[in-house]
């Protein structure tokens, strides 16, 4: 279970998040919705360790979150343009998890096959569509075996007909027991996921 307790964050004295608390059961999906400026992305960045918190607790199964337990699918994916699809997915497992090149590539190919991207493994990110890049980004994050996978605006870079496909993908991953957190302002998408929703509003300036 991922627990967020009394999380506070302000930038230059301006409060962004105040006493935010929520829980996601293991294998659950939490959709965080709210207008831009409400601090959704800040919340994701704090959970991912890209931003520091002012106070509060982030717990995974009762223990403070460690680096590597959280995977992130960025809004614009941030794939490495100099590496092929396969290299993008296999790089961190090889360098960080100390797998052999073969093992890392096998795992990467397996993930890419699951995400229907196997035939693109030797292409480079610039050759892919938005939806394909997103699936590579998901494979890259999953290759590090995160306990929680966070998505920042997963539908924003996609054609409307692809939104449903991402929703199905996320619901499919839920069956594997992965805990997921989705930042979005896409209400139709939120309805499709149809699970726990956290609404956040911009804090009034004081």
């Amino acid at each position: 279970m991922l627990e967020i307790k009394n999380l506070n964050k302000s930038f230059n004295g301006r409060p962004i998040l105040r006493d935010l608390s929520c829980q996601i059961p293991t294998g659950g999906i939490l959709t965080v919705v709210g207008p831009s400026g409400a601090g959704k992305t800040t919340l994701l960045r704090i959970i991912a360790g890209l931003e520091t918190k002012d106070s509060g607790q982030l717990l995974l199964n009762g223990q403070a979150i460690k680096q590597g337990q959280i995977g992130v699918v960025f809004q614009d994916f941030n794939l490495f343009p100099n590496l092929s699809v396969l290299q993008n997915v296999a790089l961190a497992p090889e360098l960080v998890l100390k797998k052999t090149k073969d093992e890392a590539q096998q795992t990467a190919k397996h993930l890419l096959t699951q995400l229907q991207m196997a035939e693109y493994q030797d292409q480079y990110p610039y050759q892919l569509s938005g939806g394909q890049k997103q699936r590579v980004a998901i494979a890259r994050a999953l290759a590090m075996q995160p306990a929680v996978l966070c998505y920042d605006e997963p539908t924003s870079a996609l054609d409307p007909n692809l939104r449903r496909a991402v929703g199905d993908l996320i619901l499919g991953l839920q069956k594997t027991g992965l805990t997921q957190l989705i930042i979005t302002h896409d209400m139709a998408f939120t309805q499709q996921i149809d699970q726990q929703v956290l609404r956040i509003k911009p804090l009034a300036e004081e």
């Binding site: 890209l50 959280i70 992130v72 614009d76 941030n78 794939l79 360098l95 960080v96 890259r140 590090m144």
Partner: peptide
Amino acid sequence: PQGQFEAAKVLRL
């Protein structure tokens, strides 16, 4: 882009 550094960071490089 800053995103490249961040992607590397969350992958624990």
